[in-house]
Amino acid sequence: MLELRLVQGSLLKKVLEAVKDLVNDANFDCSATGFSLQAMDSSHVALVALLLRSEGFEHYRCDRNISMGMNLGNMAKMLKCAGNDDIITLKADDGSDVVTFMFESPTQDKIADFEMKLMDIDSEHLGIPEAEYHAIVRMPSSEFARICKDLSSIGDTVVISVTKEGVKFSTRGDIGTANIVCRQNTTVDKPEEATVIEMNEPVSLTFALRYFNSFTKATPLSNTVTLSLSSELPVVVEYKIAEMGYIRFYLAPKIED
């Protein structure tokens, strides 16, 4: 028996909007720790890891670890039917091939339930090692989204370079080139508006911009985004989900041939 009650149902709506275009089908894993997902995009270039900790749910009952295969496009369609202020409850019986999403309006005057078919998904679970990164950049998520959008109108790839000067995002295309430098800026009114750069050593990596633009669909989940860069590893683009966990996107770099 599985029953997860999320008072801030809009979080789950936002999570689905953030991942549905990157991944078609995925297994949601439910355990005492929380509700999680790990999945690669179809080309195996990007990986998404989501965790919503059990403590973040108003009610969390998960009698045994279960994995529920869902089509994320269909799940997003169902969650779009929930109001932004609705409380969302996920329910599944042991051995059942369906999951029920229950939407309750804040005043309890409207209660809806949507039942979705589960699917068998043969997916591999990858071990993501703890790593030391050469540089970690925290910046406003809206700023990062703006940079990715602007650069993708010029080129297809972005070079992210972190030096003691700041973090530089560069692209080039048929019409020309673009460079955007963000310097560390901690003298702002609100901490979430700061750009903070922790650099152990300079690093420069090249990535396909279209993946970053897909990751920025998670912007509504968090005011800030963290980029962790190392020359030997995929970049990690992390959006923290307040009180609950995170959504992390891993993207393999492009390497000079």
Binding site: E124, L126, E256, D257
Partner: peptide, 14 residues
């Protein structure tokens, strides 16, 4: 010319 690396090059199956 850049070669796109695969995520499986970095992370192994559990």
């Amino acid at each position: 010319p850049c070669l796109q690396k695969n995520i499986l090059y970095y992370f192994n199956e559990d």
